[in-house]
Design a protein around this nucleic acid. Sequence first.
DNA 1: AACTCCTTCAACCGCCCGCAG
DNA 2: TCTGCGGGCGGTTGAAGGAGT
Length: 236
Amino acid sequence: MKQVRRLAVETSCCSRVGLKRGPWSPEEDEVLASFMQREGEGQWRTLSMHAGLHHCCKSCRLRWMNYLRPSIKRGHITTDEEELILRLHRLLGNRHDARLSRWSLISRRIPGRTDNEIKNYWKTHLSKKLIKQGIDPRTHKPFASSSSTTPDYPAVNPNPIAKEAIVGATGEDDHFRCSDDLNFLSEWFAEVNQAGDELFSGLIFDSFSNHVDDIILMQEQTNNSCSAWFDFESSL
DNA sequence: AACTCCTTCAACCGCCCGCAG
DNA sequence: TCTGCGGGCGGTTGAAGGAGT
């Protein structure tokens, strides 16, 4: 099955004879940028042929998304951005079940920065910085305690939080994925609300980045493997 | 100056998912 | 239900340039 799927990909645009690999020339950038401004994003497969480019569809998409888009912010990552990356990685990238690192989710919260850029910055700067500080970049906990197999937080969240507060975290209700898990999440929050702790009951998530730390705290006080968290993160 | 090693990051690779037919 | 396609994702690679000797 996988073999068939891979074959399907390879027989699409990426296996065309005469495709060019490697760095893009300024002329190719110009062709791609003007084509994108004229036609808009999408139809990557046919784009390379229609635009007269000799890079494959994926290469065109990557070049546009990571380098040529007008919204891309060039230059060094600022300390504010670095701080936000650290906090978001702690929230989204420290899954105990070793799922994906969520670079795209993190990048969406940092205007003008791409997932590739953040991924590289994390690998070359931030993870090393944390290691120097004696912190495991995977778990954001000190190395000594990160090896512990028994979590130091309760399996059931003792802290209440209104479902509306979570839904409002993005400021847009329709960002919240509609699925069966949403019902589970609602029940879970209802259960959590009955726990009696008023710590988060009045919290209003008007701006996500202002409350990352609150959400991290909540996450640490719940079971990280809970599927509700996965759903919540996906909604961000 | 010449060489080696290290770091950075653009680009590629392989895989996966959603959707349409 | 199956298959192919378009698109997206995280992981990896390798060229280029800087630092060190």
